[in-house]
């Protein structure tokens, strides 16, 4: 599995130019008072997206039928993709958070509290995105996976819309629910979100393993 991980790191390194360019643009945007929390989230999302890029590299030109003759199990492959996604996104998140922190120390014009809260929420959202998207990518592959993900997103939006309509019937508005969430102690809120992410990852991982173990190459 170590070899697989190194393969993905090398693929990432080979595509680093593109990422560095984005990082530089984001760095510049920080100096024109762009929301740093959003920038950290954006760069973290880009890093996470690279996990899916490695999967499309693996799949390209029947790559899987060679890859799965190498000395690891299909479960190892799934494990590596989850590990890679989490590690790379958290690392990038920390690096950019430290960069913002450094800027705040130098320029003394940033309030790190809300920035940290926004960035943390983005990190959780990106992990949830990964947990939902990975089984879809494993099931449908890179090309069809994109369409399937759009489908899943549409269903999720429809579900939220439907819930808000049902809520209205019982005299509860979505705005009120969001306002109520705002009143929750942030530490509890982050704790709850982190738990949701962990549960989502556990479910997502077991689905992905089942998908890959059944897959034919």
């Amino acid at each position: 599995m170590k070899g697989l991980f190194i393969k993905d790191l090398i693929l990432l390194k080979n595509q680093a130019k593109f990422y560095i360019l984005f990082a530089m643009i984001c760095g510049l945007m920080m100096f024109v008072n762009f929301n740093p929390g959003y920038l950290i989230g954006y760069m973290t999302l880009l890093a996470m997206m690279f996990t899916f890029t490695t999967m499309s590299y693996d799949e390209f030109e029947n790559g899987y039928s060679f890859l799965f003759t190498l000395p690891f199990t299909r479960k190892d492959y799934v494990k590596e993709k989850y590990g890679f996604g989490i590690l790379i996104s958290v690392t990038v998140w920390i690096v950019f958070l430290l960069a913002v922190l450094l800027k705040s120390v130098i320029t003394k014009d940033l309030d790190m509290g809300p920035i940290f809260a926004t960035a943390l929420m983005y990190l959780f959202m990106i992990q949830l995105f990964c947990a939902v998207n990975l089984p879809i990518q494993f099931k449908f592959g890179a090309e069809k996976g994109r369409i399937a993900f759009i489908g899943v997103t549409a269903v999720a939006f429809a579900a939220v819309f439907g819930l808000s309509k049902i809520g209205k019937l019982f005299g509860m508005s979505m705005i009120e629910v969001i306002d109520r969430i705002d009143t929750i102690n942030p530490i509890y809120l982050f704790g709850i979100t982190a738990c949701i992410c962990i549960v989502a990852y556990v479910i997502s991982y077991s689905i992905s393993v089942k998908i890959m173990e059944k897959k034919q190459f």
């Binding site: 080979n14 590299y57 693996d58 390209f60 030109e61 029947n62 790559g63 060679f66």
Partner: peptide
């Protein structure tokens, strides 16, 4: 495999 191998980006 005649039609498969390591990623071409390596």
């Amino acid at each position: 495999h005649y039609d498969s191998g390591f990623s071409g980006y390596l």
